[in-house]
Design a protein around this nucleic acid. Sequence first.
DNA 1: CCCCGATGACTGACTATACAGTCAGTGTAC
DNA 2: GTACACTGACTGTATAGTCAGTCATCGGGG
Lengths: 208, 208
Amino acid sequence: MTMTTEIKTKKDVVTEFRTSGILEAARKVFAKKGFHEATVDDIAEAAGVAKGTVYLYYESKRDVYFAALKFGIGQMYSLLLDELHKATTPEEKLKALIAAKLAYFDENRDFFKIYYSELGNIPTAHPAGIDNEFQALYQEQARLVEAILKEGARKKAIRSLRTEQTAFAISDIIRGVGTHRILGWSKSKISQDVDFIFDLVWKGIAAQ
Amino acid sequence: MTMTTEIKTKKDVVTEFRTSGILEAARKVFAKKGFHEATVDDIAEAAGVAKGTVYLYYESKRDVYFAALKFGIGQMYSLLLDELHKATTPEEKLKALIAAKLAYFDENRDFFKIYYSELGNIPTAHPAGIDNEFQALYQEQARLVEAILKEGARKKAIRSLRTEQTAFAISDIIRGVGTHRILGWSKSKISQDVDFIFDLVWKGIAAQ
DNA sequence: CCCCGATGACTGACTATACAGTCAGTGTAC
DNA sequence: GTACACTGACTGTATAGTCAGTCATCGGGG
């Protein structure tokens, strides 16, 4: 009973080591080649294990893919929450969120590519539901923005507008600037891009 | 000499008939399944011809894909230009462009999916260059917006800002709202979405 | 302290399948 | 009877997933 929560057996350690190694390799390979072009052999090679080993820890190529994706999303999400808690006003929060997201993308370019490029591109899973799960994860991100907007509207810092749509629009801008950066089209510093987005958005949504 | 430009031989007519039929089928199939999951057999079946026939008119699956994509982009582009020419002020132009693009996406959902979902996702072509061609087509769209912004800045209707970045941001919002619509998350009328986007953007970029 | 058998993590050759692209043959129109 | 658009069975290749076998580690008995 306590064992399952407290004690790491040797097996646990090995499993953790392998899964994280494979996940890291998968992230890189998928980012570089995309889901379909990446082969399990590629991932195995990048992780320094044999193909069979991948299947000891993951059921399928798809499974690896989603595990890598979820890991990244979870990591980013908790980072975003951390940053949001440091800020107080809606204005600060919005700026913090933009900054944190851009920074995360910048540091995890391979994740960015998987997250957005392949998003919505994976064939519908046979038993259905994976697409929905995907969309849910995606919407969750936008909902962080929406919460800020609602708070801002309550405090009269933001004019009244369709918060859900606006939240998506803001997320889309962040995505777009992120793409710009990743593709190497933008030579600006992150902080400049953050200021730019915030400026544009804030003028668009501020009260009065 | 004149024949090549003026007279449609019977062969030309057949070719046109076949290519457009295949292209239309390809658009649907690619939109539904994505590039990799779609098979040439699927496309042939959807077009009501045998697989071999597809290869009489196109060199490869990729070739079909790009033909379908380029056709859609070209069509959309000329539509956008038409609408832009009807408008006079930068304000009108921006609104016209948003409206035209959303309308086109709404009427060509399968094109939308190909254009955005798969965009940037096709493996780098072996001889290189296809990715670049893609990016060029993508940038061309944003440049339409950029031209409006620059005109607006000249006429002092728009405050001075980084036009290129802003143009991309606006394109990203349109893309985002389009996604929203396509996924069925938005039940609004197109005109409502247009007003929403325009309102948000204009407040963000207007002078004063 | 050493040997030896058991455990299980790991391997990679192999199988089954799917699919892009080909081409010899068919049928129709003129 | 000939030209040629069209067909679809066939080929070659790529690769997801499997599984019989290897080897390193460890624990217990001599």
